[in-house]
Every structure is written in structure tokens, then in C-alpha cells.
């Protein structure tokens, strides 16, 4: 599966979130972050569903690091 396919799954995450299924949106993001740890979009999306500020900071830091890697 390519990053392009990860992008497709991020759309699934969006759909789940819009439908109020936050639990599965987050579950999908967590699996995506396992498989695509270098994809900054996955970490950014995780930051939007973080449970608290610490978690959000952690995810954003991961996103920033992944973004630097992708440059």
C-alpha cells in the first residue's frame, strides 16, 4: 500500500469523524500511524482527535518530525 492509499484511508477517517464515529476514526488513525509513521498527515490528523493537550503536543511533534523527513 502506498502513501496515496494512506491518503484514501484518511478520507475514511474523515467520514467516520463526520458521522460521529470518533472511536473508530481514532482506531484507524492509530493503525495508520503504525504502518505509516513517516506520514505527517496521519500524525496531524491524530492531533485533531487527541484526548488531551499532552497527547496533542506529542502527535504534533511527530507530525513536525515526519514533515522534516519528507522534505
Amino acid at each position: 500500500m502506498s502513501d496515496a492509499e494512506a491518503q484514501v484511508l484518511l478520507k475514511t477517517v474523515n467520514r467516520l469523524y463526520r458521522e460521529g464515529d470518533h472511536k473508530r476514526a481514532r482506531a484507524l488513525l492509530e493503525v495508520l500511524s503504525d504502518v505509516y509513521p513517516d506520514n505527517p498527515k496521519v500524525w496531524s490528523a491524530l492531533a485533531t482527535v487527541a484526548h488531551d493537550n499532552d497527547e496533542m503536543t506529542h502527535f504534533l511533534a511527530k507530525a513536525a518530525a515526519a514533515h522534516r523527513l519528507s522534505d
Binding site: 492509499e5 472511536k23 473508530r24 504502518v35
Partner: peptide, 25 residues
């Protein structure tokens, strides 16, 4: 959770999404 999500996608006829989810797993 993702397995169940994929099963639901397959059941709903959304095979592409199901394929992506199962491939991810």
C-alpha cells in the same frame, strides 16, 4: 475495530475501501 470497519464496508458493497482497510491490517 478496523477489521469490523472493513467487514461493514464489504457488506455495504464498498469493496475498495474494504480492500484498503484489510490491506492496512
Amino acid at each position: 475495530e478496523i477489521l469490523q470497519l472493513g467487514i461493514e464496508a464489504a457488506r455495504d458493497g464498498n469493496r475498495e475501501e474494504a480492500r484498503n482497510l484489510f490491506t492496512l491490517l
